[in-house]
Amino acid sequence: MEIPYTVTARPETGLFNAKAGIWLFLASEVMLFGALFTTYILLRIGAPEWPHGELDIPLATLNTAVLITSSITMVMSWASLMMKDFKKYRIYMGATFLLGVVFLVIKAFEYGHHFGIGELPNKSTFLGIYFTMTGLHGLHVVGGMIVNAYFWGPGSKMWKTQPERFTNRVEVAGLYWHFVDLVWIFLFPVLYLL
């Protein structure tokens, strides 16, 4: 059975189905991270004191730049497909994947430092919420990287047979990746700067 509305828009929504689907999924993701942000506010206003200066701001700033750069390479990979330039698509999508790796390596250095000095999630409320929020975000990065790697590698064969459908797939993967960037844009000031 053929999947309906992978290229043409469904008349009721004006969208191809995957795009409607990803937006509904992202709406649920807003609530997931929203619940954690609410938890953070509750814990923070209820805490007698809140630590400052325990996190590495320069490293997190670098990671913010890395994720923002990966967002532009992601959107450029989709734009390259729209301009029928598959070679550029591979370069930009490959760069997006590698920037995801860089983000996780930097995060691993941060985690390693905390673990090394005994700052584990169970040591304080602050560390508990820090590891929960950044850990969940990190898992989202890993999820996006798996999808991006598939579309860079084996999944890209679809470009030869159904280029429009493949372009739509990359657009949907991009919407997810940008959302992951968007979450970090809020996590960074909330956890590191305030």
């Binding site: 967002s71 532009i72 940008h178």
Partner: peptide
Amino acid sequence: KGSLVASYFM
């Protein structure tokens, strides 16, 4: 920043 990402990249 979030609005820029949502408006243009998304």
